[in-house]
Computed example of a mutant assay.
Amino acid sequence: MQLNRIHHIALICSDYRRSKHFYTQILGLPILRETYRAERQSYKLDLQVGEQTQLELFSFPNPPARVQYPEACGLRHLAFGVPDLSAAVKELTARGIPVEPIRKDELTGRYFTFFQDPDHLPLELYECPEEGSPLSQTEEG
Rank of each mutant, 00 (worst) to 15 (best):
A65M: 10
Q41L: 10
G50F: 14
Q48H: 11
F80N: 00
T53E: 12
L57E: 09
F80I: 03
Y43N: 15
A65D: 14
L78R: 01
Q54I: 08
R66Q: 09
V82E: 00
L75W: 07
H77K: 01
R66I: 07
N62W: 07
D84G: 01
P61I: 13
L45S: 04
Q54S: 09
L75T: 08
C73P: 07
H77F: 02
N62I: 09
V67Q: 09
E71S: 09
N62M: 09
Q68L: 11
C73F: 15
F58E: 04
K44M: 08
Q41I: 02
P83E: 11
A79R: 05
P70I: 04
E71I: 11
L47I: 08
T53V: 14
V67H: 02
T53F: 05
V82P: 00
V67P: 00
P61D: 14
E51K: 08
A65P: 13
H77N: 11
L57A: 06
P64S: 09
S59E: 15
G50V: 04
V82C: 08
G74P: 03
A79V: 10
L78G: 01
R76W: 01
C73T: 15
G74C: 05
L78P: 00
F58C: 05
A79Y: 07
L45C: 04
V49W: 07
G74E: 03
L57I: 10
E71A: 13
L78Q: 02
L85N: 03
E56L: 08
A72L: 04
L57W: 06
E71M: 11
S42Q: 15
L85W: 03
K44L: 12
Q52A: 12
S86M: 14
Q52G: 08
F60C: 06
H77P: 00
T53I: 14
P64R: 14
P70Q: 12
L78I: 14
V67I: 13
D84I: 03
G81D: 13
L45Y: 06
K44V: 11
G50D: 02
A79T: 07
E51V: 07
P70F: 13
L47R: 02
Q54K: 13
P61S: 12
V49P: 01
L78E: 01
P64Y: 03
R66C: 01
P64A: 11
F58T: 02
Y69H: 14
E56F: 10
P61M: 13
D84T: 05
F60E: 08
A72V: 06
L45I: 00
V67R: 04
V82Q: 02
E56A: 11
